[in-house]
């Protein structure tokens, strides 16, 4: 059994689950300033029961990195140190602002609203920055940093897309109409981001270049960009359907947004595999001792099905349109 490979997949699934799930609630956080006070209350209610569990996927991802690939810690977390710290500060501000804004009044409430937005934005931007730095293998130089900044901005756009399509699913009326506009802006940003990463990754590494442009393999892997384009198109069409008030189409924009993220993630995984640090460290070189991997695998195999089960249960319990005042 190829244990490092299994854990690479598990870590990938955790990170993708994190990006999609916390992505939508960070996106909702970033959209707060664009909404009225009443709408803000509905928006917060729509993510209230979920955000905490969503963030736990990040802890699982880092937990697997710590446990399964300890050799990668120094290069990866060392290379990303300051963006990681800034992201953590952002996540802290976002998390506590959630609870504090409810209990505050007057300018205090405004301040926490602002911190909720700022924390969501800081965390999202830093995650994109980390991705940009990671893809280039932490290369130094102005151009590489500008690239990372652009990826940071695009990931914010991507989370806004997830957040906006989540709101299309969970709200109605004026707020839903606003969310459609936000979703379309988000889609444009995602297009830019996916294009940027797709162009840059082969430029940085010959390994990646070979994987994408080695004929005839090229024909096979071009399925990914084609499917991503199709998902983007489907998303646009779906928002139009929601706008026309077609029944039972509320979930489709969110579904399409998740598809875009999943496809982009698959492309990235294809590019980087089998490296933990591109061209420097493979998953087998970075892997932990087999006793640790086996111990973890037993636990994950038993517990993960339960986690998936009660997560679905929680989404079923809180299905339907969100109403304001959940916390009051």
């Amino acid at each position: 059994m190829d244990l490092p490979l299994i854990f690479m997949v598990l870590m990938g699934v955790s990170v993708l689950a994190y990006v999609v799930l916390d992505g939508y609630d960070l996106g909702v956080g970033m959209l707060m300033p664009a909404a009225t006070g009443e709408e803000q209350s509905v928006m917060v209610s729509s993510i209230g029961p979920f955000w905490d569990a969503n963030e736990t996927w990040l802890v699982l991802g880092i937990g697997i990195l710590l446990t399964a690939f300890p050799i990668a810690l120094a290069p990866v977390l060392g290379g990303l140190y300051l963006p990681v710290v800034a992201m953590l500060v952002g996540l802290m501000l976002r998390g506590v602002a959630f609870d504090f804004r409810i209990k505050a009044q007057g300018w205090h409430r405004e301040l926490w609203n602002w911190l909720f937005w700022a924390g969501s934005f800081l965390a999202s931007f830093c995650q994109g920055l980390m991705l940009g730095r990671y893809i280039t293998g932490f290369a130094s130089g102005f151009g590489y940093w500008m690239f990372a900044v652009l990826v940071g901005a695009s990931l914010c756009g991507g989370y806004v897309l997830l957040g906006a399509t989540w709101l299309i699913l969970k709200t109605e009326g004026d707020l839903q109409r606003k969310a459609i506009v936000w979703a379309r802006w988000g889609l444009a940003w995602v297009g830019l981001g996916v294009a940027l990463v797709s162009i840059a990754t082969p430029m940085v590494s010959e390994t990646v270049r070979d994987k994408w442009f080695d004929f005839p393999r090229t024909l096979g892997v071009m399925v990914l960009p084609a499917a991503t384009l199709a998902a983007g198109f489907a998303l646009w069409v779906a928002t139009a359907a929601v706008k026309r008030g077609e029944a039972r189409s509320d979930w489709r924009p969110f579904g399409a947004a998740v598809a875009i993220f999943t496809l982009a993630f698959a492309g990235l995984a294809y590019s980087l595999f089998p490296y933990v640090v591109i061209d420097r460290l493979t998953i087998w070189e970075a892997a932990a001792h087999p006793t640790a991997l086996r111990a973890l695998l037993v636990g994950a195999a038993i517990v993960l099905p339960f986690i998936v089960g009660y997560t679905i249960l929680s989404y079923r319990i809180f299905r339907g349109k969100a109403k304001g005042g959940l916390y009051d």
Binding site: T56, L60, G63, L66, A292, G299, L304
Partner: peptide, 9 residues
């Protein structure tokens, strides 16, 4: 590592 991961899981 496994002890920490078990806490998460």
């Amino acid at each position: 590592g496994p002890l920490l991961a078990y806490e998460v899981l």
